[in-house]
Computed example of a mutant assay.
Amino acid sequence: MEHRPDIVSSEVAVLWNAYMQNTMAYCILQHFNSVNEDVDMEDVIQQALENCHFVVNGVKDIFEREKYALPFGFTEGDVNLNAPRVFSDLFALRYIKYTAAAGTAAAANMLELLARKDVRELFTQILVKFTNLYNNATDLLLKKGTFIRSPTIPPMEKAEYLQNESFLSGLLGRHRPLTVVELAHISKNTETNSIGRSLVIGFSQIAQLPEVQKYLQRGSHIAQKHETIFREILIEDGIPLPSTWDSTISSSTEPPFSDKLMMYQTSLLNNTSITAYGASIGGSMRLDLGAAYTRLMAEIAQYAMDGVKLMIDNRWLEQPPQNVDREALRKKEK
C-alpha cells in the first residue's frame, strides 16, 4: 500500500495563508483588469489572474481531500467591478511586480516547511509561476522606462579585509559610507514604502467606515515618514536618489474593494515591512542603521496591532486553524 502521511501543521499554515492572500489579490487584479487601458499590460494582468487562480484551486483540492474547512477568504462580494478606477495603470503594474516578488520569496521560504510531496509540488509550481510573472512585469516596466533602479556607486578597485571596528560606526557623529548590502536594503524599503503609501492613500479615499479611513490615513503618514528617513540616509551619504514614480490616484470615492479587503491588504504590507526591517538589521553593520530599523519596526508593529484590533472589532479577521484547547475540553467534561 502507498503510504500518504497526514498533512502537518506547517503545511496547513502555508496553504491557509496562500489561499487568503491569493483570493484577496485576485479581487484586486480583477478590478485592475476591468479598468485597464494599457494594451501592453493585458498579458501581464491575465498571467497574474491565472497565477492566483492556480494557487486557490491547488489549495482547495488539498484541503478538500484532507477534509479541512476552506477559509472564507475573499469573494466577489469584496470587489465591485463596476466601480471606476482609483489607481493608474502604471501603479497596477508596479503592484503586480511587487506581489510577484513577494509571492516568489514566500514560496521559496515556505518550501523548507513542507514534507508531503503533493504540497511541495504545488509550491514548486507556484515558485516558477510567480518568478515568470515577476520577470514579465519587470521587463514591461523596463520597456516603459518606469522600473525604479537602486542607486549606483563607483566600482570597487580591489578586495580587502576590515582593519578595525570603526567600520561599525557609532550612533552619533560621522558615519562610514554605506555598503552595497546596506544600499540594497534601503532601496527595497524605500520602494516598498512608496507602493504602500500610494495604496493606502487610495484606500483611505474610498473606505466606508470612518475608523478605517482614519487608520489608513495614519498608515500613509507612517509610510511617507519612513520613506523620507531612508532618502535622508542616502542624501547624507552623497548618493544620488533613485527615481520615484508616484502613481496618480483618481478623485473617485466609489469603492471597488470592501473595507475588509483593504484592511487585510494593509496588514500584509505591515507584515512585509516588519520582515524586511528585520532582515535589514541583519544586513546592516552600521550601528545607526540598526537603531533606525529597530525604531521604525516598533512603529510598524504598533500600527499593525491596532489594525488587528480594528479587524477583530468588525469581525473581519479569520481565525487560522489551531490546536485543540485541551484545558477547555477538560472543563467541558466536568
Results as ranks from 00 to 15, higher is better:
residue 114 L to F: 08
residue 134 Y to E: 14
residue 186 I to E: 02
residue 108 A to H: 11
residue 228 T to Q: 14
residue 193 N to D: 11
residue 97 K to P: 00
residue 152 T to Q: 14
residue 171 L to F: 14
residue 209 L to I: 06
residue 149 R to A: 13
residue 121 E to H: 12
residue 99 T to S: 02
residue 147 F to M: 09
residue 181 V to C: 07
residue 149 R to S: 12
residue 105 A to V: 09
residue 96 I to V: 11
residue 197 R to Q: 12
residue 99 T to G: 01
residue 155 P to D: 07
residue 148 I to M: 10
residue 190 T to F: 06
residue 187 S to T: 09
residue 205 Q to M: 11
residue 214 K to V: 11
residue 111 L to G: 06
residue 189 N to M: 15
residue 167 F to Y: 09
residue 157 E to I: 09
residue 216 L to G: 00
residue 164 N to H: 12
residue 167 F to V: 09
residue 141 L to W: 04
residue 197 R to M: 11
residue 126 I to F: 03
residue 161 Y to M: 13
residue 98 Y to V: 01
residue 219 G to T: 01
residue 97 K to N: 04
residue 209 L to N: 11
residue 181 V to L: 14
residue 219 G to H: 02
residue 104 T to W: 11
residue 160 E to V: 08
residue 209 L to C: 02
residue 173 G to N: 11
residue 189 N to E: 10
residue 155 P to S: 08
residue 151 P to N: 09
residue 205 Q to I: 13
residue 211 E to S: 13
residue 218 R to P: 03
residue 197 R to C: 08
residue 170 G to Y: 13
residue 128 V to T: 14
residue 121 E to Y: 07
residue 99 T to E: 02
residue 135 N to S: 05
residue 148 I to G: 02
residue 137 A to N: 07
residue 145 G to H: 15
residue 186 I to V: 12
residue 168 L to E: 00
residue 138 T to R: 02
residue 184 A to F: 04
residue 123 F to M: 15
residue 192 T to C: 06
residue 192 T to R: 10
residue 111 L to Y: 10
residue 136 N to G: 04
residue 146 T to S: 15
residue 196 G to N: 05
residue 199 L to S: 08
residue 174 R to C: 03
residue 184 A to E: 06
residue 134 Y to W: 12
residue 138 T to F: 02
residue 173 G to K: 15
residue 181 V to K: 13
residue 108 A to T: 12
residue 165 E to A: 08
residue 193 N to P: 13
residue 218 R to F: 03
residue 150 S to M: 14
residue 174 R to N: 10
residue 163 Q to K: 09
residue 113 L to C: 06
residue 168 L to H: 00
residue 199 L to K: 02
residue 99 T to A: 00
residue 231 R to H: 09
residue 163 Q to T: 11
residue 172 L to E: 14
residue 189 N to W: 10
residue 132 N to Q: 15
residue 141 L to N: 09
residue 166 S to R: 12
residue 174 R to F: 05
residue 127 L to C: 11
residue 227 E to W: 01
residue 203 F to K: 02
residue 205 Q to Y: 10
residue 106 A to Y: 14
residue 97 K to M: 03
residue 138 T to Y: 01
residue 169 S to T: 08
residue 144 K to W: 12
residue 154 P to T: 04
residue 192 T to P: 01
residue 153 I to C: 04
residue 169 S to M: 06
residue 183 L to G: 05
residue 212 V to G: 10
residue 132 N to F: 01
residue 171 L to H: 14
residue 209 L to K: 13
residue 167 F to T: 06
residue 191 E to A: 07
residue 134 Y to V: 07
